[in-house]
Amino acid sequence: MKLKSILILFIILLAFWIILNNSVSPLILLTGAVISLAIAIGFCKTCDVFNDLRLTPRSFLYTFLYLWVFLIELVKSNFDIAFRVLSPSLPINPGIITAKTTLKSKMGRLILANSITLTPGTFTVDIIDDKLFIHCVNMKEEEQEEFGNHIVRKFEKYLEVIYG
């Protein structure tokens, strides 16, 4: 399993190196490959962040779907907040609610929490075990459980396939 982490880190580092250098001449490629491999092996002796990542065609497809959903949510959340900030009465009903996630992997939970932070009027204050504590700008007191599930489910169904 360690080999997988090393390989993924190596590919990411090499891609960064090529983009930053803006060229694929053999010398630059070789230097980058050697340094990336050294860093990947050095850092991934104990790391297990990429272990849960599934490398199947379905997971690649869901990564793109997830990015698409995420970008739409990002734009929507910005318009939502801009509207709330600009309206004279400041229409907010803030509160911290709890939502449960079914994701098991640490990386998946991290990405879920970060995505929630960027969706309309919600941000993750804390994660304790499988409970996410989400601060909402606009919440309804009666249906907070449903609301929390709705926020989490939106991203969870994609991350489930990618990370499990």
Partner: peptide, 17 residues
Amino acid sequence: MPDVYNRIQAGTKASTL
């Protein structure tokens, strides 16, 4: 915004996009 948490909301979202 009235408190820290709501300010964080306004700050992160709009500034990211």
